[in-house]
Simulated scan of single mutants.
Amino acid sequence: MEEFTPDLEGFTGVLSLRRGDDILGEWAVGLADRTAGALNTPATRFGLASGTKTFTALSVLSLVQDGALALDTPARQILGDDLPLIADDVTVDHLLTHTSGIGDYLDEEIDALAPMTVPVQALDSTPAYLAVLDGFPTKFPAGERFSYCNGGYVVLAVIAERVSGLSFADLVGRRVFDPAGMTASVFPRSDHLPPGTATGYKDDGRSNIFELPVVGSGDGGAHSTAADLHAFWQALVSGRIVSPEIFALATQEVTPDAGDGLGYGRGIWLDGADFVLAGSDHGVTAVSRHDPVTGATVSGLANIEVPTFARTRDLMGAARRGARVGGPF
């Protein structure tokens, strides 16, 4: 039988392979807190960066399921006079599928790691983001093409808050974390991380506290564990978060090639047979992929900027081949 040992050279975080209730392989490497000398463990909570967008999409789609929104609801209908440069024909679905064409406050087609334009400590709630979302002209007509848009997912959070009457973190908690049993998943303040949470580190050794909003919103900021992410995928595919019809919308391949050969649905990347949640930012790298056929989940969570996508793909490939996973647990 083939034996597979993952490459952990230069990796700092947790790499996990789970299926059902079984942990088939799990590795924790490096330090969660370099000052305290605290080690990463399988239970360490990591930032997910743009992996948060998957939770945003499902929270919004759950509101669609309830009839509080529709995919064709114009964003303007909910925004009123706010963000006037967003075109009147931009819909909830355009925002979910990154086809809105709206100008982006953090445009990854220009600079994926551009600094924030306001002090990060000012971004302590979703309404606070309105100031940084405003003033960006339309890039292209709605529906013309795929263009990954961080701002679009914050706009979705604004819409979801106004429709639901809940803060964004509470909405995600009620609509995603609670039904999935994700008891370790939170939206913490970066200046008050809960115990057991990894600090993110930049390449120069400094923490990322001055680089990211103090409280995340629709485009990033959730923190989770490998166990919680496996629970998330299990809950999603079994209908405990949204209905089968809404799940089909989330995983529908709206854009067959959104870059690097990956498809995109509504908040979920599609890599062959795998559903993928992924994000990367200053001091954060997170990838969680799930094979709905075998029920296997591979998650790679790091508190540094390190190649992780290929590691999770390779480990999932080994699991599919029936390889015996070797190395320390």
Rank of each mutant, 00 (worst) to 15 (best):
L193V: 00
D170Y: 08
K202M: 15
G200N: 02
H192A: 15
P179A: 07
L236Q: 07
S167H: 08
I241S: 00
D204E: 07
A184D: 15
V176E: 11
G283L: 08
V214R: 00
G267H: 11
G173K: 14
G261R: 11
G200D: 02
R174Q: 15
A226P: 02
A258L: 06
E253D: 11
R206G: 06
V276A: 03
F168G: 00
N208F: 11
M182Q: 09
G221V: 00
V242F: 07
A250T: 08
W233N: 01
G220V: 02
I246H: 06
D219P: 10
S238H: 11
V254C: 10
L262N: 12
F168E: 01
F210V: 08
R240W: 08
T197D: 02
T183D: 15
H282G: 04
Y264F: 15
V176P: 02
H282M: 11
G259E: 15
F275K: 02
A169Q: 10
V284F: 09
G263W: 15
D203A: 13
R206M: 07
G200H: 03
G263L: 15
L229I: 08
G283K: 05
L249V: 15
T225P: 04
F187M: 14
R174V: 05
A231K: 13
D191G: 02
T251E: 10
D191P: 01
F275Q: 10
D203L: 13
T197I: 01
P256A: 08
T285N: 10
L236K: 04
T197S: 11
S224Y: 10
H230T: 03
V176M: 09
D228M: 02
G263H: 14
D281Y: 14
S190K: 03
D191M: 03
G283R: 04
D257C: 03
R206L: 09
R175I: 02
V254T: 14
M182F: 07
W233T: 00
V276T: 08
D281Q: 09
A235E: 11
D191F: 06
E211I: 00
T251K: 04
L277R: 14
D260I: 03
T199L: 13
